[in-house]
Simulated scan of single mutants.
Amino acid sequence: MTEGNSTLARRRLGRKLRGGRLGAGLTLQQSGGVIRVGASSVHRLERGLVSGVDDGQVAALCRIYEFDAEQTRDVLALVEEGEGVEWWGEYEDVMSAEFRTYVGLEGAAREIRSYEADLMPGLLHTPAYARVLLETLYPDEDAATIDRRVRLRMRRQELLEIPDGPGFQAVVRESAIRMTVGGPEVMAEQCERLVEASFRPNIDIRVLPFSRGLPMREGGGPFVLLDFGSDGSGELVETPLVYIESFRGEQYLTEPDVVRKHREVYHTLLRNTLGPESSREMLRRAGAEFESRMDESPREA
Rank of each mutant, 00 (worst) to 15 (best):
A97G: 02
G14Y: 03
E296A: 12
L269F: 03
G167L: 02
D68L: 10
D54A: 09
V85T: 02
E158I: 01
L17W: 10
P240K: 05
V207T: 02
A108K: 01
Q29Y: 06
E3N: 10
M1K: 06
P201H: 07
V94M: 06
E83P: 00
R11S: 06
S96F: 08
R173K: 08
F228A: 04
P201R: 10
H43I: 02
V103D: 00
V224H: 10
P222L: 07
G213C: 11
I244R: 07
L160R: 10
D118I: 13
L123V: 02
I35W: 03
N272S: 11
L119D: 04
R148D: 04
V53A: 13
V50A: 04
Y266C: 06
G32D: 00
H43S: 13
E189A: 13
E106H: 10
V94G: 09
P139I: 15
E3S: 11
D295C: 08
Y138K: 07
S297L: 09
A117L: 15
H267D: 13
G23M: 14
R293M: 14
R248F: 12
I162V: 15
R44N: 05
E250N: 12
M120I: 15
L133V: 09
G275H: 06
G287T: 08
A108Q: 04
R15G: 10
L226S: 09
A60V: 00
L28D: 01
A39P: 11
F99R: 08
E192C: 04
G182S: 11
R284C: 01
Y129L: 04
S198A: 15
T27G: 09
E46F: 09
